[in-house]
Design a protein around this nucleic acid. Structure first.
Lengths: 231, 231
DNA sequence: ATCTTAATTTCGGCA
DNA sequence: TGCCGAAGTTAAGAT
């Protein structure tokens, strides 16, 4: 890992063309050859970058460039796509390197899978008398998040999302189209369950006769599943 | 901008829970208070981070922590959501600050908008006799990229993507469903135009009677639009 | 390996 | 400002 703080301008030519005027920035050179150009704002996305695998070649500035204050040129080339990043470096304020070694990596917990598990344990959130058939019910075009039965015994397919968008509605629609061709399952109704549902997604879902259910993650987490089994 | 290279462990509690074991990493503190935790690999996404607006409070380690080699604790709190990032810092290898100032920002050129513009100028790529009606034709569920007419005068809705995926086919299908209900437009045929089209997307599109057109960006860019007007 | 889907997405545009 | 769609998306999971 090499961290350089320097005045620089950057030109990218690849899937698009982009240019950064000369300004003070941070250049982060990672061990795999990748390069990130960060400013002092924005979020975690760099202003510009090159992903590994790539190679960095340092070139000497020509006389004209040197006169203009250019101290170095970095030509970064993507090995596979040929995308190029040209970093023109002026005054260097700081330049430090350190070997970090391989990172042990991030341990995550608590996303869509968790919501699915919670809803499976608290399936009556869909309505009284609902019963779980199974999670990840397999169909020809993929697994439905939850298959349940309502109080009349009719099949209910549930699509779970953290944020419900139009794509989720489409996904559920495809599943229902398929499942309703199966005489053993049909008629199958659809439930679109999410922590939030975009207005347009809700409109589309309701237009297609899909029920929308908002899931309160904190509340669901607070309920002890063992308690549920008493009922 | 402050750049710290140090042994650290990180715990995030917010929209999910995540943990990074103690290891050498780069901590990038931006002027707006945001923090990025980078390792020496991966792409531009940090292992962990906190987006602005947020505040960083440095706490002193207690006796037990100090004995274990902890030199500092950074508690980063998201102002709006309350998400928390706790960075436990051990040995510090490097620590440098520099004021970068506001960045002039990135100038981009050449994405989907460009493809759309090019195709509008070269609408006959869709077939002889085709004429542009307008770009970004507004419908109740959003703008269609291009509305044109074919050699018979029938409406043609065009969805443009850099990479054509199933979602793009769904999008075009929705537009067509709606537009075909409008007697002034119907019948509207669909064209799915992209630089590349995923095999499954092509299958779905053709199954739905949508025409797939591959756009050659370089070739389209090479044609002088003024030349087109001679015909 | 390729494709599909989610993301603590981020980012820009437009109503 | 909020919502929607694209991204040089990236990353993880499934086929």
């Amino acid at each position: 890992m090499r961290l350089v703080i320097a005045n620089c301008s950057v030109d990218y030519i690849g899937r698009l063309t982009a240019h950064l005027p000369m300004a003070p920035r941070v250049l982060m050179c990672k061990a795999d050859g990748s390069l990130l150009v960060h400013s002092d704002g924005g979020s975690y996305k760099p202003l510009n970058w090159m992903s590994a695998p790539c190679s960095i070649v340092e070139e000497a500035p020509d006389a004209t460039q040197a006169d203009a204050g250019v101290t170095a040129l970095w030509r970064v080339t993507q090995t596979k796509t040929g995308d190029q990043l040209l970093v023109t470096i002026g005054e260097v304020f700081s330049d430090h390197s350190h070997d970090l070694g391989k990172d042990p990596g991030l341990e995550k917990d608590g996303v869509e899978a968790h919501l699915q598990k919670l809803l499976a344990d608290q399936i009556e959130l869909l309505g009284e008398g609902h019963a779980l058939v199974r999670r990840e019910y397999m169909t020809a075009i993929g697994p439905v998040d939850i298959l349940a039965r309502d109080e009349t015994g009719a099949s209910v397919a549930v699509e779970i999302k953290r944020r419900g968008g139009i794509d989720g509605v489409e996904q559920l629609t495809r599943y229902l189209e398929l499942m309703n061709r199966d005489p053993l399952l049909a008629p199958v109704s659809g439930v679109f369950a999410a922590q939030e549902i975009a207005p347009q997604a809700r409109t589309l879902a309701e237009d297609r006769g899909l029920r929308c259910v908002i899931l309160d993650y904190d509340e669901m987490r607070g309920v002890d599943p063992r308690h549920m089994r008493l009922f």
